[in-house]
């Protein structure tokens, strides 16, 4: 798992709550730095999550997601020990991924 990604998946009753925190600048392409130079856009465009290899969530993002993106989503039918993977891709072709096993909440 990348150092810049934190994940946790907790089974609570029928629902598995998955929390994801990603280190990413999410630059809009409109911000200027201290030298009045425009900072180029750099943001995550696509994030996908899978449960035991089956896709469960596809997110498309614009520049309006905050810096260091945070996401919670809920899954039904997951069991303790199941594997959740998250992969992201940004507009510069960079990618990151993380995974978490479902644990009892």
């Amino acid at each position: 798992m990348n150092d810049n990604m934190k994940m946790r998946a907790l089974l609570k009753g029928e629902i598995t709550e998955v929390k994801v925190l990603i280190g990413h600048p999410m630059e809009t392409g409109r911000r200027k730095n201290d030298l009045e130079q425009v900072v180029p856009a750099h943001f995550i465009q696509l994030l996908t999550a899978s449960l035991n290899g089956k896709p469960v969530l596809e997110a498309q993002w614009g520049t309006g997601i905050s810096k260091n993106p945070y996401l919670t989503f809920h899954l039904r039918g997951a069991k303790v020990g199941d594997l959740i993977k998250v992969v992201w891709h940004d507009n510069k072709g960079q990618t990151g991924n993380g995974e978490a096993s479902v644990s009892a909440g």
Partner: peptide, 10 residues
């Protein structure tokens, strides 16, 4: 953002 759900995601 646009979030698309499948296979048991709420």
């Amino acid at each position: 953002a646009n979030f698309m759900f499948s296979n048991g995601a709420d």
